[in-house]
Design a binder for these strands. Structure first.
Lengths: 232, 232
DNA sequence: ATGCTGTAAAGATCAGACGTTTGAGGTCAG
DNA sequence: CTGACCTCAAACGTCTGATCTTTACAGCAT
């Protein structure tokens, strides 16, 4: 079985990074040189670079050069969001189920580890929502709220995973449903309960409320998908 | 800010898939045609296709054509393993911490949901390990054991995530340490305990043993990384 | 010192040619 | 009629080389 030279190039560049020859932030030789060194044409090399660039391993800057990214988990994992966007309907439930596992765990960790300043900021975010928020505001606020908590877990991988698992697309769809059902106030109360538990430094309570929160969304979505009405 | 035409192409192809214009398994127009339709050259289009191919969204077959993959979660998420390979040292702990959250949850689900046949197969796998297994055999067996359990959760996303989180690279490194420390028998006993709990259909017990199992590895790794001895 | 400007370097894009693989259809022997 | 083999067109794979755009940086003017 012949292996395309482009795939080989991907592996070689990956190897250079994993082996430490190319450190995070390091600059790659210019395309022409690297192509010669790896024994392929510039066109083929560019395909490899583009692929590694999509998953945020390489950072290509026109007029400057190509660099290895910081390789921080959040960078590499946010490519996950891209992938999640492709899933629809039934598989969304699987994603949500995983979120129901991860998010409560992250919330519990956050209740123990977040600094008082970060908790105060969380309060600010929650209180900043007006009485008659638009759909757009709801989504943004919800996203920021959950992201701050995820970040508060102190685990970058966990944080990125939680964020990536509920991509913008998914979140938008869910919120549309929530508002149509007039469940905005209930969601808001749950956010308040989660924050209160964090403010009181009670991980178990925070975890429980987070579970209730995600499970609520999950239940609603399960019902919605079950009925043939909402194909979209 | 000008966006590269290649990135545009990626977005457009993605949009075609998400919108349903291109169904899973569908065949794309041939490169020349698609390039013309998207208004760019074949070279640039190929870069886009290569990137989408790396994350398993497209499947390119020489001499045949380019197809949209099944888009099953396991396909898209196994690209995660590729990403995980780039992480080393400290970040590995973050990954392991997430695994300590996900794997017990998956194990509990498996204890409830796995069919008797699947449980029997799990028993076969565990018993197939000889008395003096090689390092290679240990890794393979361990991987198969945990993968069967993850699959038993019935959640494809959860399964892929658990698998991807402990890539071959990471697993190999950990096992090397475990064997050097003579902790093989202890690991084996824990596998046995997990399986027993599943066979008895006791999710809570299975979850607890899984937690103990992963936490043990985590603890060992934390200690190892702490001491400056093992830079590799 | 500050701001502007020119220039070289590096990536972005394109066009076209040629190689390689594969699926499909046709042919012929059994 | 069926199956193995062959042929070939279609589609991806790769390379070359030219041209455009953007960027960093140094040198100049204020």
């Amino acid at each position: 079985m012949r292996v395309p030279v482009t795939d080989e190039a991907i592996d070689k560049i990956k190897a250079m990074i994993v082996s430490g020859e190319l450190r995070p932030g390091a600059r790659l030789p210019k395309e022409a040189d690297l192509a010669e060194r790896l024994g392929l044409s510039r066109s083929s090399l560019r395909e490899a670079v583009k692929a590694l660039s999509l998953i945020r391993v390489l950072d290509v800057r026109q007029g400057d050069g190509t660099y290895v990214t910081s390789l921080e988990p959040d960078l590499l994992l946010d490519a996950l969001g891209f992938v999640v966007d492709f899933h629809q309907d039934n598989t969304v439930l699987d994603f949500l189920e995983v979120r129901r596992i991860l998010e409560p765990a992250a919330t519990a960790m956050a209740a123990s580890l977040m600094s008082d300043e970060d908790i105060a900021r969380l309060r600010t975010v929650l209180d900043s929502l007006g009485d008659e928020p638009t759909l757009e505001e709801l989504i943004t606020n919800d996203l920021e709220f959950h992201q701050l908590i995820a970040a508060g877990s102190g685990n970058a991988v966990l944080c990125s995973l939680v964020e990536g698992l509920s991509g913008p697309t998914t979140r938008a769809r869910i919120w549309r449903g929530v508002t149509e059902e007039g469940a905005v106030s209930r969601t808001r109360e749950q956010h308040e309960a989660i924050l209160s538990a964090i403010e009181s430094r009670r991980p178990d309570l925070a975890q429980a409320w987070a579970t209730v929160h995600v499970a609520g969304v999950e239940q609603w979505l399960r019902k919605t998908l079950g009925s043939p009405v909402s194909a979209l």
